[in-house]
């Protein structure tokens, strides 16, 4: 076995073991033949130093996503994971879309475009964007809304492209601002970027074999989400100081914790097979919220109210852990009760 074959077989380990038993040798033979140019010298060089091209790697990753995050006809465990990742991705994109949509309304209000509402307090006045980067930052975030709609309507690639459009300008702005010393170095934006990139990758679970998203329910969740989360939050923040210490990681922890408590409370009334994907999805979201909160806690040490912020952050992390850990245990137990492959049914 030459190095090129070793590297390709290593890549194929992304595929489930039963699939590899059936197809691996044939895939390797086809791949090595595709790399054969007919020239002995080039072939010898490729055998030692060649690597699968990026497009080949992407095709194997896409196949692994389809097999491991299964659709309707997949084995029960693969289907449960597939549904869980799809639900988690939809929920995370929904939260982004809700906050972006509310952001449009709040910006319009602050700019005085909603005369029928009471005028905002002078301290809330909009600061005009000072540069192209700031404008890009503000506009890019709104791309989460069409990204969510595209995902619900089944246009996965468009949703991924739009999500990247929402992620990249803020990432570039951050890199520039931190490099020039305009803002102090902090882990928060990078951790959020990492999680958003994971979200874009997770959208790959909406492949051809996946069930269509129930459109009415998920599109209806958008206005309900706006009324339930950003509107009351903004109203409270505008009128009192109480919630000004709640940042995005803190809000994520609070939302996930509330969702888990509601899920656990209603779990008895659901069929176990129906509750499992949501249990796994909320476990994934709790892990993401916990990672975000933990990684961003040290950033508070530079701030004025750092001891209060650190305490609040630690409480938020503990809360997610306290509700997320029991849910994870229940979900893994339920997952183990499922047969791993259709043949075992």
């Amino acid at each position: 076995m030459n190095r090129l074959e070793e590297r390709y077989r290593l890549l194929l380990r992304l595929l489930p073991a039963d699939y590899r038993r059936e197809w691996e040798d044939d895939m390797v033979a086809a791949f090595l033949e595709s790399m054969d140019t007919g020239d002995a010298e080039t072939a010898a060089y490729a055998a030692d130093y060649g690597r699968p091209r990026l497009s080949e790697v992407a095709s194997v990753i896409a196949l692994a996503a389809r097999l491991r995050l299964g659709g309707t006809n997949a084995p029960p465990r693969s289907y449960a994971w597939g549904q869980a990742v799809r639900l988690a991705a939809l929920t995370a994109t929904l939260v982004h879309a809700v906050m972006a949509t509310a952001g449009v309304a709040i910006t319009a209000w602050l700019a005085g475009r909603m005369a029928w509402l009471p005028a905002p307090a002078p301290e809330w006045a909009l600061i005009p964007p000072g540069s192209l980067w700031r404008t890009a930052w503000g506009l890019a975030d709104y791309a989460w809304l069409p990204a969510y709609v595209a995902l619900v309507l089944g246009h996965r690639r468009i949703a991924q492209a739009l999500a990247l459009l929402a992620i990249l300008p803020p990432a570039v702005t951050n890199a520039v601002q931190q490099a020039t010393g305009e803002v102090p170095p902090s882990a928060s934006p990078w951790m959020m970027l990492l999680l958003d990139v994971v979200l874009v990758l997770a959208m790959s679970a909406f492949h051809h074999d996946a069930e269509p998203v129930p459109r009415r329910r998920w599109l209806g969740a958008l206005p309900i989400g706006i009324l339930l989360v950003p509107v009351p939050l903004f109203a409270i923040q505008a009128t009192s100081q109480a919630l000004r210490l709640l940042d995005w990681p803190g809000l994520s922890c609070a939302l996930v914790s509330v969702a888990i408590v509601i899920h656990l409370a209603g779990r008895q009334s659901h069929r176990p097979s129906g509750a499992l994907p949501w249990s796994l999805a909320l476990t994934l979201l709790a892990a993401a919220a916990l990672a975000l909160r933990t990684a961003t806690l040290p950033d508070h040490s530079h701030q004025a109210q750092h001891s209060a912020l650190l305490t609040i952050g630690a409480v938020q992390a503990t809360l997610v852990l306290a509700v997320g850990a029991p849910l994870a245990v229940l979900a893994i137990r339920a997952l183990r009760r499922l047969p791993p492959a259709a043949d075992d049914l």
């Binding site: 197809w23 895939m27 086809a30 992407a58």
Partner: peptide, 11 residues
């Protein structure tokens, strides 16, 4: 067709 795509359809 990439090899991963071919076998994803062929299977």
């Amino acid at each position: 067709l990439k090899i991963g795509s071919l076998y994803g359809v062929l299977d």
